[in-house]
Amino acid sequence: MTTSATLLTLESDPTRLGDLQSRVDALCRDAGLEAVAANEFTTAIIEAVANSIRHGYRGEPGHPITVHWRCAQDRIDIEIRDRAPPPPAGFLDHRDMPPPAAESGRGVAMILAYTDAASYARIGAENVLNLTRRL
């Protein structure tokens, strides 16, 4: 049973990620996650949206991204939608964290580490990424 829902919309502009981080972190805390857990799930969401901007929209500003927040008694479900070209097949399979000296490549591993479930689907012209964190 969904007890609360919030729809956050933003453009594909990296400078908007700071505001999104503040908003999502507050929602996580309101939902009952303690500080570090709230930060972890917020990080997963920010990484997913950053991937949409960086890889999906190739850093081009002005494209839509929506973050649909749903909080139930025992979990938070997030649905992130964008209209970018689809990501490479199996991109969510990159579970292994790169070596510590690597300068990049941590995003998907961080998303998977900080969520209890993650799935991707292409629905019509949209990429739909679902992330879940249990409370």
């Binding site: 981080q21 930060n39 990080t43 990484e47 950053a50 690597a102 300068e103 941590r106 995003g107």
Partner: peptide, 17 residues
């Protein structure tokens, strides 16, 4: 610093290198 993402990690690793 209360929040860092993977890009932030990359920034620190780059400075170390």
């Amino acid at each position: 610093t209360g929040f860092m993402d993977s890009s932030g990690c990359g920034t620190l690793v780059g400075s170390l290198q």
